[in-house]
Design a protein around this nucleic acid. Structure first.
Length: 804
DNA sequence: AGCACGCCGACT
DNA sequence: GTCGGCGTGCTC
């Protein structure tokens, strides 16, 4: 007899352990750890993952596995182990760890159906009867709004009805009908004579098969190619010429795209020096973490591509992480162009089904390379030869919900197991990574030269206070305007970046200073021109823009701050002849809208690309010779110890967008704090100086990389409850952690209320703390009950990206 | 998380 | 006396 330990799909502390089940005789030989199963759990059925098989269980009253969902395990042994590690390092539930590793399509869906147990519908009360007149099964959803649950329960007790718990899959495999020939072509040719002469279409179809030597074709293709209808096909099937079959297909998002095959480029000296140690690691099966610090345009991607080639040569697989890849179709092109069908692509722009299909290509070993966003780090490769993380500094590699993992940490963990290298690439590495490379923990590879030998574009910093003093009240400095005009005349393109993070357009009364805030969150509402609406970006609350101040009834209520829409309007006023493409959440909402806008810009159908952060990444257009940053310092005032670092990164990245090709580029940075070191040093492309200065600051304030931090955020609808719990937690932390560890708080969160829940936080700063995980675990256990019954929430982030 | 069980208040 | 409120505890 075999027994299976199963982690069930019930994310709660009390169920966060394995439950044992009997494996029915017929599956004894089939079951393997890592498979999904459906098991009875209490009165219902749930999905779960087998984490272990054993010959013995201590538990007496075991139930049996109801169903095997997978025929081959969807989690490899390595991923099972990785799940355990994730649980421990991020303090998440085991089930959440496993689910994070798989595409959303593989998460189960639960439905309840009422089944009729009696042959006489007449015994049912009038309210329920109509539902069962024609059917024996009715979705509970359908009936529960009309009939009170108690009534249904009564019938169940009487034995008239039963509750059936169903576990369904979210997405099914996509199948299409294909038509095949029943006979050989020569036989078909002879058989043609049997078709009546008036059945022209049927003859046409059979001839199509013979002429094109096709023995199998999807039905819809056959119909459109031959211009026939399925009636003719049907009759050919009954006559025995053809037969139909269901065939599983992949939903390929890049189906209709052609990728030009590219060949490896010759590497320059710096690139060779960088790739040699990587190749050495690959060949020697050695685990190393490389930090490839290369200025924008220094040809990092080519180094990636050629190292991957080495990985594939030795028969291994590679993972490439890119930040939110849908933004950089150019990147997909480069990988698909070099490696063709060996590549799977995983990113948020794909539908659930498409992601599932890409994942299955990996699972079935049909691809050796995956290019994707954060979660692609869990690709079920078993022979991993390298992980590349491009734009290593990007904050999107950290998941901001449970499990709060950082893809970089997962990459290093996996690479250690596989004895293979990790390559972190960036023009602006995180301080953490650069510090590690200085200590020799990571190996530093430096690319200082741009491949085209072009100088980095010249950067001009404009002091907007100065502009204001000399009477320029517009959002464009005179210099920026001059340069835009100049580009327009020369037929060159410009990119304008509106750095909006933490600064959006809010509505304020000029008379009394009243600001429209969200009634559920302590945050001001954001003005949206579409429909003159005010929206809360945290809870989705909406209201119509008032014409008078709700407080003092004044009519002088206006929106402040600068949205892309407003910039666009101004731009049209000052440069009426310019063709502008605006990219922001409003214009890129629809799937593929992004790419369309970028393609349009690439084809020079516009002169100026105006957008938010999203345009800073990876764009590469030959005719862009001017980059303007409208307000460089909006981020600097956020309560975030990484604010300077992020500003520096953004400015450096965006400057790299100009003059990447033949034409020299120029950058204009507008700011109200030109003296800030992150702005000044970004304009000089002086990462090293920035690193030193910022490290100095981090050191004096006990921030990473000198200290690790943990952020505990406690929330509850009742503010006194939040404060008292946070205080208790702070006291507990102080009592249990070492005296070199600093505990800050309780303080109100930077956003003190979201969705009617008050938020307080506590910060732990530590260097070495062996009791940390244990102590945090104890806190979670202690408040477990209140968290499930009393609306209390405690979230713990063991290495927060921001403190918001 | 669900769901059952169980123990107290307001109704037939 | 019963229906139904939600606190408590269990799920292999």
């Amino acid at each position: 007899m075999k027994y299976a330990s199963v982690i069930v799909d019930v994310p709660a502390m009390q169920t966060d352990r394995a439950f044992d089940y009997k494996v029915p005789e017929e599956w004894q030989k089939l079951v393997k750890p890592g498979m999904r199963v459906i098991v009875p759990f209490g009165p219902r059925k749930v999905q779960g993952f087998i984490i272990q098989l054993k010959d013995h269980s201590d538990y007496k009253r075991l139930k049996s596995i109801t169903e095997l969902v997978d025929l081959t395990p969807c989690l490899t042994n390595e991923l099972l182990q990785l799940g355990q590690w994730l649980t421990e390092t991020t303090l998440c539930f085991k089930i959440s760890a496993f689910q994070a590793m798989l595409p959303a399509a593989m998460k189960a869906k639960y439905e309840k159906v009422l089944g009729l147990l009696t042959n006489d519908v007449g015994v049912l009360p009038e309210s329920i009867r109509p539902f069962f007149e024609k059917r024996h099964h009715v979705d509970l959803k359908e009936i529960q709004d009309v009939v009170p649950l108690s009534e249904i329960q009564k019938e169940m007790n009487k034995g008239h009805l039963e509750m059936i718990y169903q576990v369904k899959q979210k997405t099914n495999r996509k199948t299409i009908k294909v038509i095949k020939c029943s006979e050989s072509f020569s036989k078909l040719t002879k058989m043609l004579a049997e078709i009546p002469a008036n059945a022209k279409k049927q003859i046409e179809i059979v001839e199509y098969f013979i002429k094109n030597k096709i023995s199998e074709i999807p039905l819809h293709v056959l119909l459109s190619e031959t211009g026939t209808s399925d009636a003719s096909v049907k009759s050919l099937i009954t006559k025995g010429f053809l037969f139909e079959e269901m065939k599983e297909v992949y939903r390929d998002p890049y189906e209709d795209r052609h990728f030009e095959k590219t060949l490896p480029l010759a590497l320059n000296k710096e690139q060779k020096d960088a790739i040699d140690p990587i190749i050495h690691s690959i060949k020697e099966n050695h685990h190393d973490v490389f930090l490839m610090y290369g200025v924008t345009g220094s040809g990092k991607t080519e180094v990636y591509l050629q190292s991957i080639e080495e990985v594939l040569k030795v028969g291994k697989e590679a993972i490439v992480l890119v930040p939110e890849i849908s933004l950089t179709p150019q990147m997909v092109h480069r990988f698909k162009g070099r490696f063709g069908s060996k590549v799977a692509v995983l990113h948020s722009g794909l539908s659930t089904g498409e992601k599932y299909d890409e994942w299955r290509k990996i699972h079935r070993k049909e691809v050796q390379l995956v290019v994707g966003a954060r979660s692609a780090i869990f690709a079920p490769f078993e022979n991993l030869g390298m992980v590349i993380i491009d734009e290593e500094h990007e904050s999107s590699y950290k998941q901001e919900e449970n499990p709060r993992y950082h893809a970089r940490d997962v990459a290093i963990y996996r690479a250690k197991l596989h004895n293979c290298p990790v390559v972190l690439g960036s023009a602006t590495p995180t301080l953490e990574s650069f510090a590690r490379s200085k200590k020799g923990v990571y190996k530093l590879l430096t690319l200082k030269e741009r491949v085209n030998k072009r100088e980095m574009p010249k950067v001009e910093i404009i002091d907007m206070r100065e502009e204001l003093r000399s009477g320029n009240r517009s959002m464009f400095s005179r210099s920026l305007l001059d340069k835009l005009t100049d580009r327009l005349q020369k037929g060159e393109q410009s990119v304008l970046l509106l750095n909006k993070r933490g600064y959006s357009s809010f509505v304020m009364c000029r008379d009394c200073g009243y600001v429209n805030g969200c009634p559920h969150c302590d945050i001001s509402l954001t003005y949206h021109r579409r429909g003159q609406q005010l929206k809360c970006h945290y809870c989705g609350y909406e209201e119509v823009m008032p014409s008078r101040c709700p407080e003092c009834n004044s009519e002088h209520i206006r929106f402040f701050g600068t949205g892309t829409q407003k910039v666009e309007e101004e731009l049209v006023k000052v440069l009426p002849e310019a063709r502008v493409i605006r990219m922001d959440v409003d214009t890129t909402g629809k799937k593929g809208a992004h790419e369309k806008l970028l393609t349009k810009f690439g084809q020079k159908q516009a002169d100026i690309l105006l957008g938010t952060q999203m345009i800073a990444k990876g764009l590469d257009f030959p005719d862009v010779t001017l980059v303007g940053v409208l307000t460089a310092d909006t981020m600097l005032n956020l309560p975030d110890f990484r604010a300077s670092e992020k500003t520096f990164q953004l400015l450096t990245q965006v400057s790299g967008r100009a003059g990447r090709h033949e034409l020299p580029g120029e950058v204009v940075i507008q700011t109200y704090t030109p003296e800030h070191y992150s702005i000044e040093l970004a304009s000089q492309y002086d990462y090293d100086a920035f690193y030193l200065q910022e490290m100095h600051l981090r050191k004096s304030h006990d921030y990473p990389p000198y200290f690790y931090i943990v952020l505990l955020t406690i929330s509850h609808p009742d503010i006194t409850k939040v404060i008292s719990v946070t205080e208790e937690i702070a006291i507990f932390l102080r009592r249990n952690l070492g005296n070199e560890t600093r505990i800050l708080g309780p303080v109100a969160s930077p956003i003190p209320r979201i969705k009617d829940r008050y938020r307080y936080q506590c910060m732990v700063k530590y260097k070495r703390e062996k009791n940390l995980h244990e102590t945090l675990q104890k806190i979670l256990e202690h408040y477990q009950q209140e968290m499930s019954s009393n609306d209390l929430m405690i979230s713990i982030d063991l290495s927060p990206n921001t403190l918001m």
